[in-house]
Design a protein around this nucleic acid. Sequence first.
DNA 1: GTCTATATTGTGATAGAC
DNA 2: GTCTATCACAATATAGAC
Lengths: 194, 194
Amino acid sequence: MKHFSEISPAAERVVDVAEDLLQQHGYNGFSYDDVAQLIGIKKPSIHHHFSKKEELVAVVAQRYTHRFREELLRIEGQHSKAPDRLTAYAALFERTFVKNRRLCVCGMLGAEADSLPEVVVDEVQRFFKVNLGWLTSVIADGQSDALIKSQSAAEVLAEAFLCALEGSMVVGRGMRSPRGPAEVGNTFLFGVLT
Amino acid sequence: MKHFSEISPAAERVVDVAEDLLQQHGYNGFSYDDVAQLIGIKKPSIHHHFSKKEELVAVVAQRYTHRFREELLRIEGQHSKAPDRLTAYAALFERTFVKNRRLCVCGMLGAEADSLPEVVVDEVQRFFKVNLGWLTSVIADGQSDALIKSQSAAEVLAEAFLCALEGSMVVGRGMRSPRGPAEVGNTFLFGVLT
DNA sequence: GTCTATATTGTGATAGAC
DNA sequence: GTCTATCACAATATAGAC
């Protein structure tokens, strides 16, 4: 599979626009022509960079996961206590959602996963694994430090937290509500975990 | 808007199949021809029952919400304590998910809401409002009876619970994981609320 | 209620010139 | 890297016969 770091600047603009359309309309909700028109070039030029749609979307998801990992590192550098790290984590989702109720790339693709090419689902799976792994270790640390009082297994708490954040974007969009991940994350953290 | 209770048996079969396809592939992921082939008739026959796709999907969502309300009533009849009612509520989502990781109709439509006709989004919004209203009153009752210890506002707890359940289907599908709403609901209920 | 036939538009994708 | 031209097909939707 092509790697996002090895693509040209022109191809990167394609990925930028595709990411945006994906978050707003989903895999089956945008076309090569939509991407082309937003950039201001023609459809076959998109095929020049990514011959198949599944390749384009897989690269979008791949880069999205990479950037998420960079953010996780940044959070570790900026916050040392588990509750602060989890609040900052929820803020990542909130930042996406406040821009026109954009969905998480992998939340959208996760919903559609049943009718998606395998290369795409593989990337989605990787995103969730990375996030669950990180959350699990942060929560386990919080339990050791007695900053998180719930004694449920860190792994299942991590999953519930991630699900609440992903779900908040879906529900917030479906309800046309301004309420998003930050609020739901807060409820979870201060009504449940700590 | 057409009401699901006033449609013919033939039209109802169309709604049955459309609901299924919707849960598996989303609004933009199934076609009139898919519906026709699964029933064993031709595409224009579907148009005879529902001239536009948005009308068909709106009726699917409408009936889905109605059936959900019937289930909520049933839960009220079978369980009197708030935690039991919430566990039974999570089981509704689990029942959907265990069938080939099927998504909640309105969870799927909520994710896609940005590129959906307004008549459809209206129904999705109604579904979430109905569910949040019911959950809020159940949780408030549980707080009065001291069966739910969290003192956060019932409304925000309701939203977090619903988001966790909807999100669990999205994440479970994206991870190709068998873990679903029942487990996440459990974590929320016994690690957070009670 | 179902069909055949068809209009119209959009889609992912390719060939080959510049 | 971008273009024009084009293909093959699938989509929603309509007209009109049975």
